[in-house]
Design a binder for these strands. Structure first.
Ligand SMILES: [Mn+2]
Ligand SMILES: [Mn+2]
Ligand SMILES: [Zn+2]
Ligand SMILES: [Zn+2]
Lengths: 136, 136
DNA sequence: AGATACTTTATAATGATTCTAAAGTAGTGT
DNA sequence: ACACTACTTTAGAATCATTATAAAGTATCT
């Protein structure tokens, strides 16, 4: 299902023109078995290796943020100078391995139900994210 | 307990010389009733208002990171371009109000026990942090 | 007081991200 | 296929939080 035609449909269905660059980026991001957590710099390096044609850094930024706005990518909160993204856009939790600085997805079944007992008047809960720091 | 003498003791006890600037910064940070969540820019503005003598931005950076290393401050993970710090250095959770972009501390009693069922071989859990996004 | 290590400061450098505006391309209608 | 238009890509410049530099100032010790 992660072939070129599919990426084209995905892009079209949300009003993004299926350009060479966007399709290459889709392949790099979604043609994998596991969730991919990455920075712009990671993605840029991967594209330089995997793809023949050079995609400008500006396009990579533009595309990643377009995908984020269309909910094809999620931004992840970490204490680093670079912004992280996640191809798993569902609500889910993470291990952060502090040795390697790598993120690992937790399935919802990996985490017991989280109960938030306090309420803020007039405010609704939009999401609950857990970050579990681990190390050797 | 949050008087000047106390700050001096606090600084000395961890090998930081009690300078004018560090004491001013201590006052701005710890002479309050509630947890303070802030950016360097927030702190700089506060110091300009509250304090007579000007403290350079470089010193504010230096001091905040010195305090962080001594565990007087905690860094908070958020998806923003600026780094956030927290005067509450205990393990605790947060509401993030997406309208105002303000953090609110959750007491541990505000959150039901979090059970992490999955284990990563050879890795230990260092901390568990929950971020609850809220909005109108 | 004098010696020394630590600290502050103005300023420059860095680096991720965002902006700009010109050239290129995809979709639409003919 | 051709032209038209809106969207996209791109190189390069600008921005801005953060970090580095190195000279002047200060705390602590004897
Ligand atoms: Mn990375
Ligand atoms: Mn702020
Ligand atoms: Zn993930
Ligand atoms: Zn807090």
């Amino acid at each position: 299902m992660n072939n070129k035609e599919n990426f084209i449909k995905k892009l079209r269905s949300s009003g993004l023109r299926p350009t060479r660059q966007r399709i290459e980026i889709c392949k790099a991001l979604y043609d994998r078995k596991k969730t991919f957590h990455f920075t712009i710099d990671d993605l840029n390096k991967i594209l330089r290796k995997k793809s023949k044609e050079k995609i400008s850094l500006a396009t990579i930024y533009n595309t990643v943020y377009a995908f984020k706005n269309k909910n094809y990518l999620k931004e992840i909160s970490l204490n680093t100078n670079k912004t992280y993204f996640d191809t798993n856009v569902s609500n889910h939790h993470h291990f952060l391995d502090e040795n390697s600085n790598r993120l690992i997805d937790l399935k919802n079944s990996d985490v017991g139900k989280v109960k938030i007992k306090r309420k803020i008047p007039g405010k609704k809960i939009k999401s609950i994210e857990i970050l579990v720091r681990i190390s050797d």
